[in-house]
Amino acid sequence: MTAMVEISELRKTYQSGFEALKGVSLEIREGEILALLGPNGAGKTTLISAICGISVPSSGTIRVGGYDTITDYRAARKLIGLVPQEINLEPFQKVIDAVRFSRGLFGCKRDDVYVERILRQLSLWDKRDAKIMELSGGMKRRVLIAKALSHEPRVLFLDEPTAGVDVELRRDMWDIVAKLKADGVTIILTTHYIEEAEAIADRIGVINKGELLLVEEKTALMTRMGRKELVVELQEPVESLPEALSGYDLDLIEEGRALRYTYDTSADRTGITKLLSDISATGLVLRDIRTRQSSLEEIFVGLLQENAA
């Protein structure tokens, strides 16, 4: 796959002297969904603003679709749609006018058929003649998306699109993102909901304190970093771990009713077969067995702790 966005050695120092990006390099592939995770103030919005032309990088280069965002800004920006983190809309404007305005601003001829399609896709068609101030928060967010899509962008930046959005709308949002991906649009989204990244992203990037800690395939990340747990439920509770099992990384949980074994999925041998036969050798009777994969959230928290250390 070719790179849609190429960022190299990007630094951003704000006028206050604060360095919000400390040399970020990143390639975003055409047609992928990249989720950027990171705590508040990590630099996610700063990174997006620099790519979209809202702020000027202190150093480094950014290319979108092969076009430099400074020297070839017109060509680069025409490819980009941006849904900002804050809901910034003209309160007195009608929904449909807002979308038409954005389209024109990006140099596209008026196209009522296309605008209707977008508004329908976002369930805004019935509200097309409503003033923006008459909409609910979730609808306003959809208007932002409609505006961002008004000029048929090839790259879409979604800065926390699901912050403060109810479960249903969040699902809708994921569907919209999936449809856009099917149309070949490259999508970069930031989120604090790790299950969101887990659900829709192809790759995951983690930013902390202006540095990109990693970018990796979601599945690879989860297997590489993933710890798995095997929980063995016992028929009868036990007071303490039997001597014979002291060689394993075992915890007694649920008031002695279960044993928890933690292992690395990427290790050659997980040791499960031997563990189970050793358990039965001690005479313990098994009631049930379950396994659990550690979530991206745990991986993420672990990474940040490592970074802080």
Partner: peptide, 10 residues
């Protein structure tokens, strides 16, 4: 804050 759009437009 709607100026973001003019700033990010070509």
């Amino acid at each position: 804050g709607t100026i973001y759009e003019q700033l990010s437009a070509p």
